[in-house]
């Protein structure tokens, strides 16, 4: 089991290799990537800011919880910070387990807890040159895309 806040490109092949074990019958890889639009805005990139010491601890706690809940030690998670372009991976979660149901559930648990608890913030950059901190708690009215 391993988790890290990183500031370089996430190599998903490395994560997959780390969770390999002959007793595992299922491996789930989740990769979160920067998409090119959000709430009607065209996005060119995202700057991820992080309270790194706490995020490191919190991510480790989340992995330990998932390990205990779903009975596997084969969990590797990396969350990237800094500037990312569209299409780059911001987070990757590799979980391997004897059974697929537990692998899927553990992966889902981790990403939902990451979104709820990890002290990380993202500032989206738009095609018109403006940028804005994302507030997932804000009420957003999505209009037609221009």
């Amino acid at each position: 089991m391993r988790s890290a806040i990183v500031d370089d490109v996430i190599d998903v092949e490395t994560l997959l290799a780390e969770v390999e074990r002959d007793s595992n019958g299922a491996t789930v890889l989740f990769v979160g990537t920067v998409r090119d639009q959000n709430n009607g805005h065209r996005v060119t990139g995202i700057e991820y800011a992080c309270y790194t010491p706490m995020a490191t601890r919190e991510l480790s706690s989340i992995c330990t919880e998932a390990s205990e809940r779903f009975a596997t030690l084969d969990i590797v998670v990396e969350h990237r910070t800094g500037h990312l372009f569209v299409g780059e991976a911001s987070v990757a979660i590799a979980v391997a387990h004897a059974r697929r149901a537990s692998a899927y559930e553990a992966s889902r648990y981790i990403i939902e807890q990451v979104k709820r608890r990890l002290p990380i913030w993202k500032r989206e950059e738009y095609t018109d040159g403006t940028r804005e901190w994302v507030d997932p708690t804000a009420v957003v009215v999505v209009g037609p895309e221009s």
Partner: peptide
């Protein structure tokens, strides 16, 4: 004491 804005990881 860290005052945490709405988090947006992932």
């Amino acid at each position: 004491v860290a005052i945490i804005p709405p988090v947006a990881g992932g």
